[in-house]
Design a protein around this nucleic acid. Structure first.
Length: 336
DNA sequence: CCTGACTCC
DNA sequence: CATGGGAGTCAGG
């Protein structure tokens, strides 16, 4: 029996990636233990060991937010990176809970609900997706019904998880191989899922076809508010480089417009805090989330201001929704 | 200094 | 031949 997966890294070595170990874990015990060890090792080295050394004399961590790093217009965060604080696992969440408000203060987290999928609907003008968001429907349930034919509540519950992955993946031009890897189905099944998806969301398919054409013509793509991303590889003689540039071109208007909107919202939020005499400070931006600190007695009002300014930052063919939470630490501020 | 792995959106 | 996009940090070589 072949114990070692045949998959190789770019340097020709045997891969021990999470995906490979997951597959081996179905047959052997050791790979599962290695996965668990790596998870804890990562949390310890990157966060538990390193972050305390970054605390300044005022008891706070003052990282950098970089404006000219990401090609799409997103901010990036470094020294330390505060945009990748754990949240997915229980032990990870304990690290996030270590970010606390000053005594007498609260943390308010506000994040856009499905910002990029809403922008996919707006930018592609896909009628079915626009209709879902305009009616306030759950987009993943709609995909579960229309693409996977889920009817009963039971079917819907199962199909929604799958639909959610598919909504995000196909929106950025994943290929059958990638989808099959991601959700553990065959390439043939993945191909059918993608075909069915495009048959439902015809506007999305049209966008996927049109973007590469205009990218080849101009050599760049733009976000809704004019941010330009050059795509030097779009006419390369190497097809792999060309296809990579096409996917970057498909993704940029979505991700780039999201980053435009969050930046506009940040300006409006700052102005509103001033106007309303609120003693609130923006601490962090995490792509679709703003983290704010303010005195306890202003927290409810700050949360309402955040929500209002984020939702009205721009006017689109779909509503923008922001959800807020208040807590003594970053974890609790997000949970509510 | 690069690679692979892992964290986040 | 490679196979959704965007980042930063770490250990190990």
């Amino acid at each position: 029996m072949n114990i070692i997966s045949g998959r190789k890294t770019s340097t020709g070595r045997v891969s021990t990636s999470r995906a490979v170990l997951e597959e081996l874990a179905q047959t052997y015990e050791l790979p599962r233990l290695i996965i668990e060890y790596r998870e804890l090792d990562k949390l310890k080295s990157v966060y538990t060991d390193a972050l305390p050394h970054q605390i300044a004399a005022d008891g706070r961590i003052h990282g950098q937010l970089n404006q000219t790093v990401a090609a799409t217009g997103r901010l990036s965060s470094s020294d330390p990176n505060l945009q990748n604080i754990p949240i997915r696992t229980e032990q990870g969440r304990r690290i996030r809970a270590a970010f606390v408000a000053e005594k007498g203060n609260k943390l308010i987290s506000a994040d856009y609900s499905q910002l990029e999928l809403r922008l996919l609907a707006h930018i592609t003008r896909d009628e079915v997706m626009l209709d879902a968001f305009q009616k306030g429907d759950d987009i993943h349930n709609r995909t579960a019904r229309l693409v996977f034919g889920a009817k009963t509540d039971e079917e819907l519950k199962d199909a929604r998880r799958f639909a959610k992955i598919v909504n995000f993946a196909i929106a950025y031009a994943i290929e059958p191989w990638g989808l099959s890897q991601r959700v553990g189905i065959s390439r043939q099944e993945a191909r059918k899922v993608i075909d069915d998806y495009y048959a439902t969301y015809k506007g999305v398919r049209r966008y996927m076809d049109e973007i590469p054409v205009q990218a080849r013509e101009h050599g760049y793509v733009r976000s809704l508010y004019g941010r330009i991303r050059p795509l030097p590889g779009i006419n390369d003689r190497n097809a792999n480089i060309r296809r990579a540039a096409e996917r970057e071109g498909i993704n940029m208007p979505i991700q780039g417009t999201a980053s435009d909107i969050v930046k506009i919202a940040m300006l409006h939020v700052d102005e509103a805090f001033r106007r309303e005499g609120l003693d609130a400070k923006m601490l962090m931006q995490v792509h679709d989330e703003l983290l704010v600190e303010c005195p306890k007695n202003q927290a409810e009002k700050v949360a309402r201001t955040l929500k209002r300014e984020m939702e009205s930052a721009v006017e689109l063919d779909v509503p923008l929704i922001a959800e807020t939470g208040i807590g003594d630490n970053w974890m609790d501020a997000k949970k509510q």
